[in-house]
Design a protein around this nucleic acid. Structure first.
Ligand SMILES: [Zn+2]
Ligand SMILES: [Zn+2]
Ligand SMILES: [Zn+2]
Ligand SMILES: [Zn+2]
Lengths: 132, 132
DNA sequence: TAACATTGTGTAATAATATAACATTAACAT
DNA sequence: ATGTTAATGTTATATTATTACACAATGTTA
């Protein structure tokens, strides 16, 4: 049997933490939360994060230096991500839109270049904050 | 007469440096380069950068923590940016495509939310690196 | 199995990126 | 001139991320 991506102990601990979190987590907040499980150093966290990003289990929200679990199985193949970020409450939601991903995957720049990999961050107000 | 956005001395020094640079510049590299002009502390650089980003004269490449001058006058109004980034040589190009900006500005998520502000980073190989 | 290569781990030190706090000054509008 | 806002200068500190090195676990191939 071919295990797709069996996570190591550290990777699993850190993935579980991020996956349970309702909001993106920062590396040092992750570190603080897993110290009781024996992960003591920043590098141990960053190594697990790198791997998890690489295999598509989590994404990095670049503008926030934070990490969120992927809930969109298609991302695990294409490294093409899109998020909406609320500028007031910082709520982050992964956007899963076939139309959008199709448009961006097929987008050609001036030189005719296509890009299968991209990261898109939309900023605005979430529903809750719009009503306030 | 109403000056739109007259830059202050520090802002001008830092903008000129970034504008002349063929590649995105990082904050501490900027700091190093302007020390001879009397800008001695990180905060002086970050304050100018914040302002320049805010008024649309430069953009931050979030995935690289670097800053690039805007060469697309329309960005100065809408905080809506798109870049292509070469994964080998790190060349960054601002994409100016009416079609793309229209598509993204009109994009609605599941909840019908629109986002006038966004940042898009495409990753791939530039022309040069494709040929190698 | 044995040998090798690849990947992950643990630990310490350090680099790179960014902000807080405070006092002061310049620019601008009543 | 007075009050207000924005910018500055300076010091210290917080936050984010990597380098370097020794070692262990895992997987592949002979
Ligand atoms: Zn995803
Ligand atoms: Zn919100
Ligand atoms: Zn621009
Ligand atoms: Zn290139």
């Amino acid at each position: 049997m071919h295990k797709e991506h069996a996570l190591t102990k550290n990777q699993q601990i850190i993935f579980d933490l991020i996956d349970k979190s309702p909001e993106p987590m920062k590396a040092y907040s992750i570190l603080f939360n897993v110290q009781k499980k024996g992960i003591k150093a920043p590098l141990q966290v960053y190594r697990a994060l790198d791997k998890l990003v690489q295999i598509g289990k989590i994404h990095k929200i670049e503008s926030r230096n934070a990490f969120i679990a992927c809930h969109n199985s298609s991302c695990q193949v294409a490294k093409a991500t899109a998020f909406s970020i609320c500028e007031i409450c910082e709520k982050v939601t992964e956007i899963s839109s076939a139309g959008l991903s199709k448009y961006l995957a097929n987008f050609k720049d001036k030189d005719g270049m296509k890009y299968s990999k991209y990261n898109l961050e939309f900023f605005g107000l979430c529903k809750k904050c719009t009503l306030k």
